[in-house]
Design a binder for these strands. Sequence first.
DNA 1: CGGTTCCTTGAGGATGATCAACGAGGGTGG
DNA 2: CCACCCTCGTTGATCATCCTCAAGGAACCG
Lengths: 199, 199
Amino acid sequence: MQIDIDVLITWGGITKKVAKDTTIFFEGEEARGYYQIVSGSVRLCNENSDGKEFTQGLFFEGDSFGEPPLILSELYPCTAITMTDSVLIKLSREKFLLLMEEYPSIEKDLLKLFALRIYNKSVNIRSMMNTSPESRIMGFLSQYKKRTKGSNNNSPILIPFTRQQIANFTGLRVETVIRTLLKMSELNKVNIINRKLFY
Amino acid sequence: MQIDIDVLITWGGITKKVAKDTTIFFEGEEARGYYQIVSGSVRLCNENSDGKEFTQGLFFEGDSFGEPPLILSELYPCTAITMTDSVLIKLSREKFLLLMEEYPSIEKDLLKLFALRIYNKSVNIRSMMNTSPESRIMGFLSQYKKRTKGSNNNSPILIPFTRQQIANFTGLRVETVIRTLLKMSELNKVNIINRKLFY
DNA sequence: CGGTTCCTTGAGGATGATCAACGAGGGTGG
DNA sequence: CCACCCTCGTTGATCATCCTCAAGGAACCG
């Protein structure tokens, strides 16, 4: 989404600097407010029983996150953690609901945003479920590139994630990610220069 | 969701009887209209390159489906197929958008529906990604039961799906589903009576 | 009955996970 | 400037598990 920051502040939104790897909310907590990223990045994730982490979604500058439980008055199904030093703006649940009443266009935007999330999830779940490690990774890479560069830019971009982060997102193990990326670079599907990954 | 059927008809919705296993729309087609199930059931699915099917979602009486691409003016990411003889009601894109303008409450409902879909997807993706066959199947069963019976009913219900359908939904193979269900029934996590599955 | 669909079982193979090291690079403090 | 540490990347060997392939059995329906 992206509500204008001035509007958020006018309505009582509070900005906050947050260090890397800070937890914003925990899985199982009640949804307390609307969060939007002024700068930085956030991941939503679950911790598996065996301590392995699975990343459900990535969010960057301008993105909001954690709205569905807020609207449903549900508990958060994920934990939110900053991936870099970030500045977030938070608006309390009550104020957010008032704001939506006041500006129906926000509701419309949110509807489109949700539609897009469902749509993207559907596209991605396809590459993630039960298919080869390669197509899982490709799904992740193309999704990231699409979001970053817009739809059709063919020049490779640097993928700013560690192998471990890619593993967490694809549900694979680090070693598998490494070996698969190696194969993919041999086939020129990705480039690896100095251990940096380009796609 | 669930828009009142009389309202849909008043606005130009057309009901249609459809036999089992009929394709309502194909993956890659433009979204042409709003669909709601009067009776029967529908699945959204993808066909893998190797001919294997993956089921993305199940929809039953009263449910609408395929709205996100409609709102985004996108192509359908899935194919929709009836799972039983069904009666569907369809409203053209233009009329649906007009209807939404006229009744803001529909927009609100849709927003909540989308929020719920995202929320449920998030809960489920957790049990589906990279975990054991058992937890995948459990995820499927509990989701189905929750939708059918409401939240907390402990009495087992008949699961009206074939092993193959469960396999398509969980991304497993039929044989794995069968063997896993057998193990689960030995542990009393499910009941199998006369090849019928209860949970 | 005969056909169709679904369920079941067994054997074998492929592949990703696991475990255990080690290497490379970047930052920090002495 | 060097030694150390810490994170991240990499490699190899072994293992567990799910998929694959093949065959047959049970239930249902005309």
